[in-house]
Amino acid sequence: MSSIKSISDGLRLDDVQVAWIQPWLSKFGAWVYSGRIEKRQSSIIAEFMATVEKRDYPEREMCNDDDGMLIAKVVDKIYHIDRIAFTLLLLRYAFGSSDRAIARYYHHIVKPRQMIRRNRTVEYRKPSMSTCRREIEDIISSAEYLIYPYLKDAFKKREKEWKSKNNSKNVLTSLSQ
Rank of each mutant, 00 (worst) to 15 (best):
I7P: 02
I7G: 06
S8L: 10
R12M: 11
L13S: 08
V16H: 13
V18F: 07
A19Q: 15
W20N: 14
I21V: 10
I21P: 04
Q22I: 01
Q22P: 00
W24E: 15
K27I: 02
F28I: 03
W31F: 06
W31I: 00
G35E: 02
R36Q: 13
R36G: 08
K39P: 04
R40Y: 10
Q41M: 11
S43F: 03
S43Y: 04
A46D: 05
M49F: 00
M49P: 01
A50V: 05
R60S: 00
R60N: 01
M62H: 02
M62R: 01
D65Q: 07
D65Y: 03
D67L: 04
L70D: 01
K73Q: 15
K73E: 13
V75G: 06
Y79A: 15
Y79G: 12
R83C: 10
R83T: 09
I84L: 09
R92V: 03
R92C: 01
Y93G: 03
A94H: 00
F95C: 01
G96R: 03
S97G: 04
S97F: 06
S98I: 02
S98M: 00
D99Y: 09
A101P: 02
I102K: 09
R104Q: 14
R104F: 10
R104H: 13
Y105F: 13
Y106N: 09
